[in-house]
Protein backbone atom coordinates (compact mmCIF):
# COMPACT_ATOMS: atom_id res chain seq x y z
CA UNK A 1 0.00 0.00 0.00
CA UNK A 2 1.27 3.47 -0.87
CA UNK A 3 1.50 6.00 1.87
CA UNK A 4 -1.04 8.75 1.26
CA UNK A 5 0.53 11.76 -0.37
CA UNK A 6 0.07 14.65 2.01
CA UNK A 7 0.17 18.12 0.59
CA UNK A 8 2.14 20.66 2.57
CA UNK A 9 -0.01 21.99 5.34
CA UNK A 10 -0.44 25.37 6.91
CA UNK A 11 -1.41 26.12 10.51
CA UNK A 12 -4.72 27.47 9.24
CA UNK A 13 -5.57 24.06 7.79
CA UNK A 14 -5.97 22.94 11.39
CA UNK A 15 -8.36 25.71 12.39
CA UNK A 16 -12.10 25.00 12.60
CA UNK A 17 -14.92 27.32 11.62
CA UNK A 18 -15.75 27.83 15.28
CA UNK A 19 -15.34 31.24 16.84
CA UNK A 20 -12.65 31.04 19.51
CA UNK A 21 -14.25 32.03 22.80
CA UNK A 22 -11.36 32.63 25.18
CA UNK A 23 -11.00 36.08 26.81
CA UNK A 24 -9.07 38.51 24.65
CA UNK A 25 -5.42 38.30 25.64
CA UNK A 26 -5.69 34.83 27.14
CA UNK A 27 -2.55 32.73 26.85
CA UNK A 28 -4.61 29.92 25.36
CA UNK A 29 -4.64 31.75 22.00
CA UNK A 30 -0.88 31.56 21.79
CA UNK A 31 -0.89 27.88 22.68
CA UNK A 32 -3.53 27.21 20.02
CA UNK A 33 -1.32 28.94 17.49
CA UNK A 34 1.71 26.92 18.54
CA UNK A 35 -0.20 23.66 18.34
CA UNK A 36 -1.58 24.47 14.90
CA UNK A 37 1.94 25.35 13.77
CA UNK A 38 3.21 22.05 15.21
CA UNK A 39 0.51 20.05 13.44
CA UNK A 40 1.39 21.75 10.17
CA UNK A 41 5.09 21.12 10.66
CA UNK A 42 4.60 17.43 11.35
CA UNK A 43 1.94 17.27 8.60
CA UNK A 44 -0.46 15.62 11.00
CA UNK A 45 -3.18 13.64 9.25
CA UNK A 46 -6.41 15.23 10.56
CA UNK A 47 -8.29 11.96 10.10
CA UNK A 48 -5.93 10.05 12.35
CA UNK A 49 -5.53 12.76 14.94
CA UNK A 50 -7.77 13.03 18.00
CA UNK A 51 -7.79 15.80 20.59
CA UNK A 52 -9.35 14.77 23.88
CA UNK A 53 -9.96 17.20 26.69
CA UNK A 54 -11.59 17.52 30.09
CA UNK A 55 -13.41 20.63 31.25
CA UNK A 56 -12.08 24.13 31.77
CA UNK A 57 -11.05 27.05 29.59
CA UNK A 58 -8.08 25.05 28.36
CA UNK A 59 -10.26 22.06 27.66
CA UNK A 60 -12.28 23.93 25.02
CA UNK A 61 -9.29 23.35 22.81
CA UNK A 62 -10.61 20.50 20.62
CA UNK A 63 -13.38 22.68 19.22
CA UNK A 64 -10.74 24.82 17.58
CA UNK A 65 -8.65 22.10 15.96
CA UNK A 66 -9.74 20.61 12.64
CA UNK A 67 -9.17 16.98 13.56
CA UNK A 68 -11.31 14.52 15.51
CA UNK A 69 -12.11 15.95 18.91
CA UNK A 70 -13.79 14.80 22.12
CA UNK A 71 -14.51 17.31 24.86
CA UNK A 72 -15.28 15.01 27.77
CA UNK A 73 -15.81 15.62 31.50
CA UNK A 74 -13.80 17.32 34.19
CA UNK A 75 -10.53 15.54 34.88
CA UNK A 76 -11.20 12.37 32.94
CA UNK A 77 -9.56 13.05 29.58
CA UNK A 78 -6.52 10.81 30.23
CA UNK A 79 -8.88 7.91 31.02
CA UNK A 80 -10.99 8.50 27.91
CA UNK A 81 -7.83 8.81 25.83
CA UNK A 82 -6.55 5.52 27.26
CA UNK A 83 -9.75 3.84 26.04
CA UNK A 84 -9.31 5.36 22.60
CA UNK A 85 -5.78 3.98 22.38
CA UNK A 86 -6.95 0.56 23.59
CA UNK A 87 -9.52 0.50 20.81
CA UNK A 88 -7.22 1.86 18.13
CA UNK A 89 -3.51 2.26 18.89
CA UNK A 90 -3.02 3.71 15.39
CA UNK A 91 -4.69 6.97 16.33
CA UNK A 92 -2.55 9.94 17.24
CA UNK A 93 -4.07 11.08 20.50
CA UNK A 94 -3.47 14.42 22.19
CA UNK A 95 -4.88 15.29 25.61
CA UNK A 96 -5.49 18.87 26.71
CA UNK A 97 -6.48 20.18 30.12
CA UNK A 98 -5.86 22.77 32.80
CA UNK A 99 -4.11 22.54 36.13
CA UNK A 100 -7.39 21.95 37.96
CA UNK A 101 -8.52 19.40 35.40
CA UNK A 102 -5.37 17.33 35.43
CA UNK A 103 -3.91 17.85 38.88
CA UNK A 104 -7.00 18.20 41.05
CA UNK A 105 -10.10 16.31 39.97
CA UNK A 106 -8.19 14.26 37.42
CA UNK A 107 -4.87 13.86 39.21
CA UNK A 108 -5.44 10.17 39.62
CA UNK A 109 -5.98 9.57 35.91
CA UNK A 110 -2.95 11.63 34.96
CA UNK A 111 -0.79 9.64 37.34
CA UNK A 112 -1.99 6.31 35.99
CA UNK A 113 -1.69 7.29 32.34
CA UNK A 114 1.90 8.29 33.06
CA UNK A 115 2.84 5.17 34.95
CA UNK A 116 1.23 2.94 32.33
CA UNK A 117 2.96 4.87 29.59
CA UNK A 118 -0.01 5.02 27.24
CA UNK A 119 1.07 6.56 23.95
CA UNK A 120 -0.47 10.02 24.47
CA UNK A 121 0.74 13.58 24.13
CA UNK A 122 -0.59 15.44 27.16
CA UNK A 123 -0.66 19.23 27.24
CA UNK A 124 -1.27 20.63 30.70
CA UNK A 125 -2.07 24.34 30.58
CA UNK A 126 -0.96 25.69 33.92
CA UNK A 127 -2.38 29.11 34.76
CA UNK A 128 -2.33 28.43 38.51
CA UNK A 129 -6.04 29.20 38.72
CA UNK A 130 -9.51 27.83 37.93
CA UNK A 131 -10.35 29.98 34.93
CA UNK A 132 -13.69 28.64 33.78
CA UNK A 133 -15.30 28.73 37.22
CA UNK A 134 -14.21 32.32 37.64
CA UNK A 135 -10.98 32.40 39.46
CA UNK A 136 -10.78 30.13 42.47
CA UNK A 137 -7.26 29.07 43.48
CA UNK A 138 -6.02 25.79 42.03
CA UNK A 139 -3.69 23.00 43.20
CA UNK A 140 -0.79 24.80 41.51
CA UNK A 141 -1.56 28.22 43.05
CA UNK A 142 1.22 29.49 45.25
CA UNK A 143 0.63 29.89 48.98
CA UNK A 144 -1.10 33.16 49.67
CA UNK A 145 -3.07 33.28 46.42
CA UNK A 146 -6.11 35.45 46.99
CA UNK A 147 -9.19 34.24 45.16
CA UNK A 148 -12.97 34.20 45.69
CA UNK A 149 -12.59 30.97 47.66
CA UNK A 150 -9.43 32.08 49.50
CA UNK A 151 -10.06 35.73 50.38
CA UNK A 152 -7.39 35.53 53.07
CA UNK A 153 -4.91 33.89 50.75
CA UNK A 154 -4.51 30.18 50.04
CA UNK A 155 -2.73 28.18 52.71
CA UNK A 156 -2.12 24.78 51.10
CA UNK A 157 1.13 24.03 49.34
CA UNK A 158 1.01 23.73 45.54
CA UNK A 159 1.88 20.63 43.55
CA UNK A 160 4.53 20.68 40.84
CA UNK A 161 3.20 19.10 37.67
CA UNK A 162 6.60 17.96 36.48
CA UNK A 163 7.77 16.52 39.77
CA UNK A 164 4.50 14.68 40.12
CA UNK A 165 4.93 13.32 36.60
CA UNK A 166 8.46 12.16 37.24
CA UNK A 167 7.35 10.60 40.49
CA UNK A 168 4.64 8.71 38.64
CA UNK A 169 7.22 7.26 36.29
CA UNK A 170 6.72 9.53 33.28
CA UNK A 171 9.15 8.86 30.44
CA UNK A 172 8.85 12.29 28.84
CA UNK A 173 8.55 15.54 30.74
CA UNK A 174 8.85 19.03 29.30
CA UNK A 175 7.91 22.61 30.04
CA UNK A 176 6.95 25.36 27.62
CA UNK A 177 5.63 28.90 27.86
CA UNK A 178 2.56 30.13 25.98
CA UNK A 179 4.16 33.20 24.44
CA UNK A 180 7.35 31.54 23.21
CA UNK A 181 6.20 30.87 19.68
CA UNK A 182 9.64 29.83 18.51
CA UNK A 183 10.37 27.45 21.35
CA UNK A 184 6.97 25.94 22.09
CA UNK A 185 6.34 24.23 18.72
CA UNK A 186 9.73 22.53 18.96
CA UNK A 187 8.91 21.19 22.40
CA UNK A 188 5.52 20.01 21.13
CA UNK A 189 7.13 18.26 18.20
CA UNK A 190 9.51 16.48 20.55
CA UNK A 191 6.61 15.45 22.76
CA UNK A 192 4.67 14.17 19.82
CA UNK A 193 7.63 12.22 18.48
CA UNK A 194 8.04 10.47 21.83
CA UNK A 195 6.42 7.02 21.93
CA UNK A 196 4.61 6.74 25.25
CA UNK A 197 3.02 9.32 27.50
CA UNK A 198 4.59 12.72 26.97
CA UNK A 199 3.68 15.41 29.46
CA UNK A 200 4.19 19.05 28.55
CA UNK A 201 3.41 21.66 31.17
CA UNK A 202 2.62 24.88 29.36
CA UNK A 203 2.86 28.01 31.45
CA UNK A 204 -0.26 29.97 30.51
CA UNK A 205 -1.28 33.40 31.55
CA UNK A 206 -4.91 33.86 32.60
CA UNK A 207 -5.27 37.52 31.93
CA UNK A 208 -8.56 37.80 33.77
CA UNK A 209 -8.08 35.89 37.03
CA UNK A 210 -4.34 35.49 37.49
CA UNK A 211 -2.67 38.04 35.28
CA UNK A 212 1.06 38.24 35.71
CA UNK A 213 1.32 35.16 37.89
CA UNK A 214 4.42 34.15 35.94
CA UNK A 215 5.77 37.61 35.17
CA UNK A 216 8.63 36.96 37.55
CA UNK A 217 10.20 34.65 34.99
CA UNK A 218 8.34 35.34 31.75
CA UNK A 219 8.66 39.12 31.44
CA UNK A 220 10.90 40.18 28.61
CA UNK A 221 13.06 42.14 30.98
CA UNK A 222 13.88 39.20 33.22
CA UNK A 223 13.38 36.11 31.13
CA UNK A 224 17.01 35.61 30.14
CA UNK A 225 18.11 35.39 33.74
CA UNK A 226 14.95 33.76 35.07
CA UNK A 227 14.69 30.86 32.62
CA UNK A 228 17.07 28.17 31.59
CA UNK A 229 16.41 26.48 28.26
CA UNK A 230 17.67 22.97 28.48
CA UNK A 231 19.01 21.04 25.52
CA UNK A 232 20.27 17.47 25.50
CA UNK A 233 24.06 17.30 25.39
CA UNK A 234 24.52 21.05 25.85
CA UNK A 235 25.82 22.78 28.98
CA UNK A 236 23.13 24.17 31.27
CA UNK A 237 23.82 27.82 30.62
CA UNK A 238 21.50 30.83 30.83
CA UNK A 239 21.55 34.59 31.11
CA UNK A 240 21.78 37.24 28.44
CA UNK A 241 25.28 36.28 27.33
CA UNK A 242 24.96 32.74 28.56
CA UNK A 243 27.54 33.55 31.22
CA UNK A 244 25.50 31.87 33.95
CA UNK A 245 25.19 28.18 34.48
CA UNK A 246 24.14 25.36 36.76
CA UNK A 247 26.58 23.18 38.61
CA UNK A 248 26.36 20.66 41.40
CA UNK A 249 26.66 22.33 44.76
CA UNK A 250 29.67 21.25 46.73
CA UNK A 251 29.05 18.56 49.28
CA UNK A 252 25.39 17.92 48.51
CA UNK A 253 23.01 16.58 45.91
CA UNK A 254 21.73 19.96 44.83
CA UNK A 255 22.07 22.36 41.96
CA UNK A 256 23.37 25.88 42.28
CA UNK A 257 23.36 28.74 39.81
CA UNK A 258 26.72 30.33 39.24
CA UNK A 259 28.22 33.01 37.05
CA UNK A 260 31.15 32.10 34.83
CA UNK A 261 32.57 35.49 35.74
CA UNK A 262 32.77 34.57 39.38
CA UNK A 263 36.00 33.61 40.97
CA UNK A 264 36.53 29.87 41.04
CA UNK A 265 33.84 29.03 38.49
CA UNK A 266 35.00 27.13 35.44
CA UNK A 267 33.18 26.08 32.28
CA UNK A 268 34.00 22.48 33.02
CA UNK A 269 31.95 22.57 36.22
CA UNK A 270 28.74 23.41 34.37
CA UNK A 271 26.40 20.48 34.13
CA UNK A 272 25.69 19.03 30.71
CA UNK A 273 22.00 18.28 30.16
CA UNK A 274 21.27 14.59 29.85
CA UNK A 275 17.61 14.08 29.01
CA UNK A 276 17.83 10.38 29.88
CA UNK A 277 18.86 11.09 33.46
CA UNK A 278 15.79 11.02 35.69
CA UNK A 279 17.67 12.38 38.68
CA UNK A 280 18.88 15.40 36.77
CA UNK A 281 15.37 15.90 35.39
CA UNK A 282 14.06 15.91 38.93
CA UNK A 283 16.60 18.48 40.04
CA UNK A 284 15.71 20.65 37.06
CA UNK A 285 11.98 20.27 37.72
CA UNK A 286 12.59 21.51 41.26
CA UNK A 287 14.03 24.81 40.11
CA UNK A 288 11.77 27.68 41.08
CA UNK A 289 12.37 31.40 41.24
CA UNK A 290 14.76 32.84 42.29
CA UNK A 291 16.50 29.94 40.54
CA UNK A 292 15.98 29.93 36.78
CA UNK A 293 12.87 28.00 35.71
CA UNK A 294 13.70 25.10 33.40
CA UNK A 295 12.14 25.24 29.94
CA UNK A 296 12.43 22.56 27.26
CA UNK A 297 12.63 18.79 27.40
CA UNK A 298 13.75 17.84 30.89
CA UNK A 299 13.38 14.09 30.46
CA UNK A 300 13.02 11.85 27.43
CA UNK A 301 13.72 8.18 27.93
CA UNK A 302 11.35 5.97 25.97
CA UNK A 303 10.03 2.69 27.35
CA UNK A 304 7.54 0.17 25.94
CA UNK A 305 4.05 1.64 25.74
CA UNK A 306 1.03 0.20 27.46
CA UNK A 307 -1.14 0.11 24.37
CA UNK A 308 1.48 -1.80 22.40
CA UNK A 309 2.02 -4.24 25.27
CA UNK A 310 -1.73 -4.87 25.53
CA UNK A 311 -1.91 -5.74 21.86
CA UNK A 312 1.20 -7.88 22.04
CA UNK A 313 -0.28 -9.91 24.87
CA UNK A 314 -3.51 -10.38 22.92
CA UNK A 315 -1.52 -11.52 19.88
CA UNK A 316 0.35 -14.05 21.99
CA UNK A 317 -2.94 -15.36 23.31
CA UNK A 318 -4.36 -15.64 19.82
CA UNK A 319 -1.28 -17.44 18.57
CA UNK A 320 -1.49 -19.84 21.48
CA UNK A 321 -5.24 -20.46 21.27
CA UNK A 322 -5.49 -20.75 17.48
CA UNK A 323 -8.52 -19.50 15.59
CA UNK A 324 -10.96 -18.27 18.20
CA UNK A 325 -14.09 -20.42 18.10
CA UNK A 326 -16.68 -19.38 20.64
CA UNK A 327 -18.96 -22.29 19.74
CA UNK A 328 -16.14 -24.66 20.61
CA UNK A 329 -15.30 -22.80 23.81
CA UNK A 330 -18.86 -23.18 25.07
CA UNK A 331 -18.61 -26.91 24.49
CA UNK A 332 -15.26 -27.32 26.21
CA UNK A 333 -15.24 -28.94 29.64
CA UNK A 334 -17.94 -31.10 31.16
CA UNK A 335 -21.04 -31.36 28.96
CA UNK A 336 -23.81 -33.93 28.72
CA UNK A 337 -26.54 -34.82 26.30
CA UNK A 338 -30.19 -34.98 27.20
CA UNK A 339 -32.17 -37.36 25.06
CA UNK A 340 -35.31 -35.30 25.71
Amino acid sequence: MNAPVLKPRQPKDYATDQEVRWCPGCGDYAILKAVQRTLADIAADPARTVFVSGIGCAARFPYYIETYGFHTIHGRAPAVATGIKLANPELDVWVVGGDGDMLSIGGNHLMHALRRNVDLTILLFNNEIYGLTKGQYSPTSRIGTRSPSTPGGSIDRPVSALRLALGAGARFVARGIDTQQKVLPDILKRAHAHKGTALVEIIQNCIVYNDGAFAGFTDRAVEADAQIHVEHGAPLLFGKDRRKGLRLAAGGLAIEAVSLDEEGVEEGQILIHDQTNAMLATLLAMLEPPMPVAVGVLFDSPAPTYDAAVRAQEETERARAGTPDLNALLRRGPTWTMPG
Binding site: T72, V80, A87
Partner: peptide, 9 residues
Protein backbone atom coordinates in the same frame (compact mmCIF):
# COMPACT_ATOMS: atom_id res chain seq x y z
CA UNK B 1 -14.32 6.68 30.71
CA UNK B 2 -11.97 4.24 29.03
CA UNK B 3 -14.93 2.15 27.88
CA UNK B 4 -16.57 5.26 26.46
CA UNK B 5 -13.30 6.29 24.81
CA UNK B 6 -13.19 2.86 23.20
CA UNK B 7 -16.75 3.27 21.89
CA UNK B 8 -15.84 6.71 20.58
CA UNK B 9 -12.96 5.07 18.73
Amino acid sequence: CAALGASYA
